[in-house]
């Protein structure tokens, strides 16, 4: 029962969807405050290498080392995001240019590769610690639901809590309301006494932290270890950015989209192993194709309806221009 293609693909969808979920929640927070950050791929890779470094260097109980590693990944992602925040919020640089620069700077051929090489990491170094699956309440063998819901790593359960918290924060709290105001109409928010610069900084940094944790999902859970170059996360950062659009800037839809896209990244191998013949290029391209299709449908068919994009997304806020 639990060996059927459907169950395996759904379980993998959760596994591969988790980094997408973390990264897209982070991007969602940044974008809701009006800052587009295309540096997700770079922040993820840097978080991945730092998280792996902590597990290799710190001795101690497995759980505490892993928690420390996740914290370090988050902090390093946030540190990378701080560069973007300073450039785009304080210096009001173009957000697209700065984000792309961040991906190149921190990414597979940049800082993360440099750090990994300096520390002597390579794929033939076994990971000392990794997030294994937690058999929740002994339900891992439950038909169908067992492998999908109850036999995942702690990161998966953490991502559910994160999605819930981000959703509640944006939809139900005053701070969340303020964030949305900053992203929709920063001038009005400013007039209301909301500190636009502070809000944007905080959310870009938290967004970077989420991206760092998303990177650690790869180096500590999906394929524990480190390899320089851009194959470790293989474009997941870009999918996460597409996912935010796909999810209409809503946390709960990020969860759905992440698992949908996660299933697509697991599908080529699961199908091939069962002798089902589908062109792999087609499956690799699907997340992007789906994002484009959704964009087209929503922006043409219902052109008058609000897509959900924060109105001030991508526009630097200048107080004098009122």
């Amino acid at each position: 029962m639990n060996d059927t293609l459907l169950v395996i693909v759904l379980a993998d969808a959760v596994l591969y969807g988790t980094p997408l979920l973390f990264a897209s929640l982070g991007e969602l927070l940044a974008e809701r405050s009006g800052v587009l950050n295309l540096g997700v791929e770079g922040m993820m890779l840097f978080g991945a290498v730092v998280g792996f470094w902590v597990t290799q260097r710190v001795e101690g109980a497995s759980a505490s080392v892993l928690v420390l590693a996740i914290l370090a990944s988050g902090l390093s992602g946030a540190a990378m995001a701080a560069i973007h925040a300073f450039l785009t919020i304080t210096l009001r640089a173009n957000q697209i240019v700065s984000g792309l620069a961040l991906t190149i700077f921190a990414g597979g051929l940049g800082l993360s590769a440099y750090v990994g090489t300096e520390l002597g990491f390579s794929p033939d170094i076994p990971a000392k610690q990794h997030f294994g699956s937690v058999d929740v309440l002994g339900l891992a063998d439950l038909p169908v639901l067992g492998p999908i819901v109850f036999d995942q790593s702690a990161l998966v359960y953490a991502s559910w809590i994160a999605a819930l918290l981000v959703g509640l924060y944006l939809g139900r709290t005053r701070f969340g309301l303020n964030v949305r105001a900053v992203g929709e109409a920063p001038a009005s928010a400013d007039a209301m006494g909301i500190n636009v610069t502070l809000y944007r900084y905080v959310h870009v940094l938290i967004g970077g932290g989420f991206a760092g944790v998303a990177g650690a999902c790869y180096s500590l859970s999906i394929s524990p270890g480190w390899i320089a170059g851009d194959t470790l996360i293989g474009g997941a950062g870009w999918i996460a950015i597409a996912l935010v659009i796909f999810a209409f800037w809503r946390a709960e839809l990020c969860l759905v989209g992440a698992y949908l896209f996660g299933a697509l990244s697991a599908l080529p191998f699961a199908l091939q192993a069962r002798n089902v013949d589908v062109a792999p290029e087609f499956l690799y391209a699907l997340p992007y194709v789906m994002t484009i299709v959704v964009l087209v449908i929503v922006s043409t068919g219902l052109s008058k309806r609000h897509l959900g994009a924060p109105a001030a997304l991508g526009i630097p806020y200048v107080r004098e221009e009122r």
């Binding site: 993998d12 794929p123 790869y218 999906i222 394929s223 194959t231 470790l232 293989g234 191998f269």
Partner: peptide, 12 residues
């Protein structure tokens, strides 16, 4: 060369 793809392939 792809660590995640080779990992996924092995698991599948």
């Amino acid at each position: 060369v792809s660590v995640p793809k080779e990992t996924a392939a092995a698991k599948s």
